[in-house]
């Protein structure tokens, strides 16, 4: 469990995190989403106990990170931004160092070491210097370090940043597999990640919480939510006719490929009426799609609306 209560951090006159309250429960993967410089990393650093909050409190598994820092840190696995590690050490030495500092009993330690190394497929590079590893491997070493002590709470700062699509997929599968009984907080600016991983999203910009919802709820805020789009090449689908349907609020045609998007009025469904109309007119449609809503659009709307 992670609880942040009116967490605030100032750098001089700049307010990096402004009275941020979030709460993540076991079984939840909470995504901290925001543009660059929104205060995601600063917030995580305070929860991890690296930075002291200017005001407010953070608790990990009920332990206040300021008053009981060791207890909080023991319950937490943390991957800092950029996955820093000691480059001159080999992967084996580095992970052994983490085991020693965390003072895990030898037997549990060895078992966890083997499990984590297998899980993250680090067997082949165990005796290589971390400096010589690719970015993806280094990120995996950072993840290994974070989950080595099997923590109930995991906090990952941009865990897939800079990875190729295959590596991203692997890391997401890993996070997914750990999500069931743990509390996981990840920060990201990648919207696809939210879809792939999170069951709740907190959007912050300029240090302030702007939205706290499930990905589906966010999508529902999109004007594309429930819209229907289709391509009907060659056939002169009459926009006029579509516009006469009572459920339709607006119609847009993509100037590049002629794809037509039909937006519903609030609360209305347009898929069936549009399909009926097309059938009646005997028009050939290559494919038709019901949109769930576009997160990127909602994200822009929420985070940019703030500055306007």
């Amino acid at each position: 469990m992670i609880e942040a209560d009116r967490l605030t951090r100032c750098y001089g006159r700049l307010i990096a995190v402004d009275a941020l309250s979030i709460r993540a429960e076991p079984g939840q993967v909470l995504g901290l989403l925001g543009p660059n410089g929104a205060g995601k990393s600063t917030a995580m650093r305070m929860i991890a106990g690296f930075l002291a909050p200017t005001s407010g409190t953070a608790r990990v598994c009920g332990h206040d990170v300021q008053r009981e820092p060791l207890k909080a840190k023991r319950a937490l696995g943390y991957l800092p931004e950029g996955a820093p590690s000691y480059g001159e050490m080999t992967v084996r030495e580095f992970l052994t160092f983490i085991l020693r500092v965390r003072a895990l009993p030898a037997e549990t330690g060895f078992r966890r070491f083997d499990e984590v190394v297998t899980h993250l497929q680090l067997e082949d590079v165990l005796d290589q210097c971390i400096d010589t590893l690719s970015k993806g491997l280094r990120r995996r070493v950072g993840l290994a370090q974070a989950i080595l002590h099997d923590p109930p709470v995991l906090m990952l700062d941009e865990p897939t940043d800079g990875l190729d699509p295959n590596q991203k997929h692997a890391v997401r599968r890993l996070i997914d597999s750990m999500a069931r009984e743990r509390t996981i907080l990840i920060s990201t600016h990648l919207l696809e990640e939210v879809h792939a991983l999170c069951n709740r999203v907190v959007i912050i910009a300029r240090g302030r919480l702007l939205a706290d919802a499930t990905p589906a709820e966010l999508e529902a805020r999109s004007r594309y939510h429930g819209a229907v789009s289709f391509s009907a090449p060659g056939s002169g689908v009459s926009q006029e006719m579509l516009g006469r349907l009572p459920q339709v609020a607006a119609i847009e045609v993509d100037p590049l490929d002629g794809r037509i998007t039909v937006f519903p009025k609030p609360g209305a469904r347009v898929l069936e009426p549009v399909e009926d109309l097309l059938r009646q007119q005997g028009l050939e449609v290559s494919e038709i799609q019901l949109e769930r809503g576009r997160l990127d659009e909602v994200f822009r709307q929420i985070t940019m609306g703030e500055s306007a």
């Binding site: 650093r45 991890a48 060791l70 840190k73 943390y78 800092p80 931004e81 590690s85 500092v101 965390r102």
Partner: peptide, 14 residues
């Protein structure tokens, strides 16, 4: 400089 300070100080050490 290397950013490992963040790693070290978020481990359970005083």
């Amino acid at each position: 400089k290397a950013g490992t300070l963040e790693l070290l100080l978020t481990l359970p050490v005083t």
